Amino acid sequence: MSLTMKKRRHAEAMVPQAWLGLMKGQARKAGRRVSPMAETARDVAAHRLEDARIWAAPKLDQASHSVEEQFAPMVSAFLAEMSRRVDVSPVKSRRRWPMLALLTGAVIGAVGAVMYRNNAQRWTDTMKDNMREGVSDTAKWTGEKARETADKVGKKSDDISGKIS
């Protein structure tokens, strides 16, 4: 056997014709010996495949019922929830609560403002009454102090004029 190199660096085997005939004969003999074993392997594989299908068929049926009864409702509920969340159309119940809270706040604010004005008016009236009473009390007190001071000044001036004369 000789090897030759071509231009593109491919090795090419040069096998003599006699060797090819010899190898062909040996392959036929090996094929005749292996053929019964291959048929037996094929039959065993077919039998085992049939056994596997007999075992797997009820398991797959049971799994399909289990998925249908247990898993499918959860997936369906999940998908329905996602579609509700993704849906663009507004839901009326979602808009009622914020509007109700806003209106309640406005009503409470208006009631508070009215109560504040009433309380402020009462406070103003009370202060006016107290001021009137306070002014008259202050005037009385001031008048009394002025009389007392005038009396003291009068006594002192009498004392001083008595000492001078």
Rank of each mutant, 00 (worst) to 15 (best):
S66A: 10
R33H: 08
A30T: 13
L22N: 05
K156N: 13
D159A: 10
K145W: 07
A52S: 12
R122H: 05
V135K: 03
D129E: 13
K152N: 04
G21P: 00
R8N: 13
T40L: 07
M5Q: 06
M1N: 02
S76T: 04
E68D: 14
A38E: 10
N119C: 08
N119R: 14
E68H: 12
E39A: 05
W19D: 03
L100G: 05
S83A: 15
A106P: 01
T40V: 05
E12R: 07
I160L: 15
L20G: 00
A41D: 01
M37I: 08
R28H: 08
I54K: 06
T138N: 10
A150Y: 04
S35L: 14
W123E: 13
A46Y: 02
R132G: 09
F71S: 10
T142N: 10
Q26A: 09
R94T: 01
M74F: 10
K59L: 14
G105V: 00
R95H: 06
A11L: 14
L60I: 15
S89C: 04
K140P: 01
T138H: 13
S136R: 11
K145M: 10
Q62L: 08
G143C: 02
V86R: 10
V34Q: 02
D151I: 02
T138M: 11
D159V: 11
L100P: 00
S2M: 03
S64G: 06
A57V: 10
P36S: 06
R94Q: 03
S165T: 07
A106R: 15
I54E: 09
E50K: 04
P90L: 04
L102D: 00
G162E: 10
K140G: 09
